[in-house]
Nucleic acid binder design. Structure first.
Lengths: 339, 339
DNA sequence: AAGCTAGCCGGGAACGATTGCATAGATTTT
DNA sequence: AAAATCTATGCAATCGTTCCCGGCTAGCTT
């Protein structure tokens, strides 16, 4: 079995002490140039690599950051992860990705596990089920650096990176209004998620600006963000069973948008004849869809990058940080309209 | 800062030695029931968790496995990852996911990093660029357990989990032939990948069975598996510029299939009027596509599960394993045909 | 009553690396 | 010439855990 070489091996082979070898490799001025040369050459020869586990134990840090998302199969998150990796790797950090599948239990288990595994910090996007963040609170209070992105916890004081959900939702709703829709429904994820609240607000503002009434009946929540087909189907069916059937749906959420299109197709509800649709999505194949989907796109890659930069800054800060920022990035409305 | 409790803390608080505490927690028979009870209760009270880093150092294992895929944004891989996680977590293993983005350099860097970080084993799907696997060879010889899935290295003796690529490719090609296509092109990933070779073989067999000639001109390789739009576009343009223009394309690869559809749309080549298409894909939204794509679907989730089970068996085996299996799972052809 | 065993527990080394302190010899300062 | 400084190296503690080894106290046997 696979026995990597250690400082001790080098020391024994060269007749030196481990401390001398360690210092020689770290290029301290205390070691004579000749000794350094001998050590470096031998280390090179046997391909010595310091044991990161021993280092973690000693230094109480692991040069790795944990990422918590609901699913990597979500376009928004996979793009954000690419952004996270691009920064992390350039700064010498490992990235450990975990998925919650929108479950509070899995989120908690994953995060506890990451924390005990001594990640140096956390990049968190909450699961749809999560409303109690007290376990995160306690980790945060104990000094574990964390940065939220996309789905943030309002009661935890740290950096937060989000998209301009209100404006994105406003534009998507406005688009439907300008197409002549009068009864616009809103299909969204679980009600306590920050993104749901903000997108609902944008939706309301658009209605108000154009003098359309807001109706609670038109807002349908999917507590698991469309993880289950039935959840989405039920919501759509309920909307379509209303007395005043909606003539449009604005959907908040990547998975939900795609899921809703599938449901509509299966229910043989045609777009745009029977209903109009816009939604949040970062899919890069929306152009292939029929019916087309006008979508709000978030700068996922950049959000991942910024979140990682801020997290690393927190981790490497010598003094505790008490000033936190909430960075808001602009979304873009991508109009797709078959004429 | 965040100081988790240790064995020493418990020992000091209870007036015992660390060894006694350690044994009490691990429920050794040497410790009296009363002492055990006291220790367990106190440990529970202060929420003691053994430090996994210290354990890793001592036990020379980390209870974590490394996964190497080209991209998590690929439907096949994200499903396989879900399968991997489902098994790994139930067996108490961590999963560390890394992406190669089809680059040999990134693959090598990631794997070296994982190995030095003491993952207990590796689940590998090679990048499109990789043809030299000697660095993997050497890790394997040094005893690092690894299992390949999907894109395997033929010259490394270990477990391999693949789909029946030949049969899948055969069926997809046969489907085109039965639709009446005579000049079927084949768009595939880089030529040295195992999946490319097998899918090409299935394609050839279908042609042969139905008495169609095989033409090298009809086979186009994308060395980066369609990572870059231009690569795919060039290949499609070359095919369409042939004197005997193909009347169908069979595409090997998830990303490539989607990419090719985008290219065809942009080039205003219509399906099925101008050309017919089938491809490998695990996307779950193909039903929303227009034009429709008849696709070969791989049992990605199961492949991930099986690979992980086999890897854990290798890791936990007390004796070196010399008998390796190649498990082949069946694909399914999902016909989508607008009449 | 002396010896034996079993039960229970503590001491200390080990895993691999870093680092403050000690030390020996060489060199410079006063 | 004695003292101070500097150079190059080694010793040992540390991080948190496990485990080998040995010690002590009962209780039991003969």
């Amino acid at each position: 079995m696979f026995e990597p070489s250690t400082l001790k091996d080098i020391a024994k082979a060269l007749g030196l002490s481990t401390s001398t070898v360690s210092r020689a490799l770290r290029d301290t001025h205390e070691i004579s140039p000749e000794t350094k040369k001998i050590v470096l050459e031998y280390a090179e020869k046997i391909n010595y690599r310091p044991n990161p586990i021993a280092l973690s134990l000693k230094e109480r840090r692991s040069k790795s950051i944990g990422v918590i998302v609901s699913e990597v199969a979500n376009h928004y998150f996979s793009q954000a992860i690419n952004g996270i990796e691009s920064i992390a790797y350039s700064r010498g950090y490992h990235v450990i990705i975990t998925q919650t599948h929108e479950s509070y239990e899995r989120e908690k288990a994953n995060i506890q596990h990451l924390a005990s595994r001594s990640v140096d910090g956390l990049l968190v996007s909450l699961s749809a089920e999560t409303s109690d963040t007290s376990y995160l609170q306690s980790l945060h209070k104990r000094g574990l650096p964390m940065v939220f992105f996309d789905r943030v916890a309002d009661d935890i004081e740290t950096h937060k990176i989000i998209a301009n959900n209100e404006k994105g939702a406003f534009e998507a709703t406005e688009f439907l209004i300008k197409k002549g829709c009068k009864r616009i429904a809103h299909l969204t994820s679980s009600s306590h998620l920050s993104i749901s609240i903000e997108r609902l607000e944008g939706y309301k503002q658009a209605l108000e600006k154009y003098g359309l009434p807001f109706k609670q009946d038109y807002v349908k929540y999917c507590p698991h963000g469309g993880m289950f087909y039935e959840e989405t189907e039920t919501a759509v069916k309920e909307l379509m069973a209303l007395q005043e059937k909606p003539d449009a749906i604005f959907i908040a959420g990547d998975r939900l948008s795609i899921g809703c299109l599938v449901v509509l197709k299966n229910l043989r509800i045609n777009i745009p004849e029977d209903i109009n649709v816009t939604g949040f999505s970062n899919s890069d194949v929306l152009d292939l869809f029929n019916p087309p989907l006008t979508s709000v796109r978030q700068p996922a890659f950049e959000m991942g990058q910024i979140a990682t930069e801020k997290l690393i800054k927190l981790i490497e800060s010598k003094y505790p940080v008490y000033e936190f920022e909430k960075e808001v990035l602009e979304t873009s409305l991508q109009v797709r309209d078959d004429l």
